[in-house]
Amino acid sequence: MNIFRFAGDMTHLISVLVLLLKIYATKSCSGISLKTQELYALVFLTRYLDLLTDFISIYNTVMKLIFIASSLAIVWCMRVHPIVRRSYDKDLDTFRHYFLVAASFILALLVNEKFGFQEVFWAFSIYLEAVAILPQLVLLQRSGNVDNLTGHYIFFLGAYRALYILNWIYRYFMETHFSRWIACIAGLVQTALYADFFYYYYISWKNKAKLQLPA
């Protein structure tokens, strides 16, 4: 484990905690895309299939359980919690995310490290995570103004995979036969999708103004 990877995991954990804080503190999920949250739950459930079969470390297992539990808890809150679910922007969150699932699965069948059950689902989770933020970014542009916590949530979510890219570069030079081309290319695409958000987030931070995305 290198510092980039650890920083990436902590940033990812912070993003989840910020979202849980937003939902818990404001009892509202306005501005949050349920579709993106459902895609993340699917990403973790399909990526961590090796949770029971392949023990890496306590840290690895604990973090996997945290990500699975938190993503399911957020989906539950937005779908079932009597107060939170009322603030869901149902008519703004209209991205056809099933296409993202289908495309990722087809790509995973074609491009994977090994044509096996776990490997295909692992590749599927990598591809799906790369595009899972799209419904959220579309909702953001439609809903215009963004509350602070939601802005921070998306910022940390985008930053974590950027740190993972540094981790892959580091491992590529430090470890002999390290290759994670699938994760690395998907990670680059994933981070690139946040490019314009990062720009507007920086502008709002520099001008001490509210985060505004152009409609």
């Binding site: 990526r47 890496i56 690895n60 996997k64 036969h177």
Partner: peptide, 10 residues
């Protein structure tokens, strides 16, 4: 799986 092939990341 041999070590380098395992998915040791999150």
């Amino acid at each position: 799986l041999p070590d380098e092939k395992r998915h040791d990341e999150l």
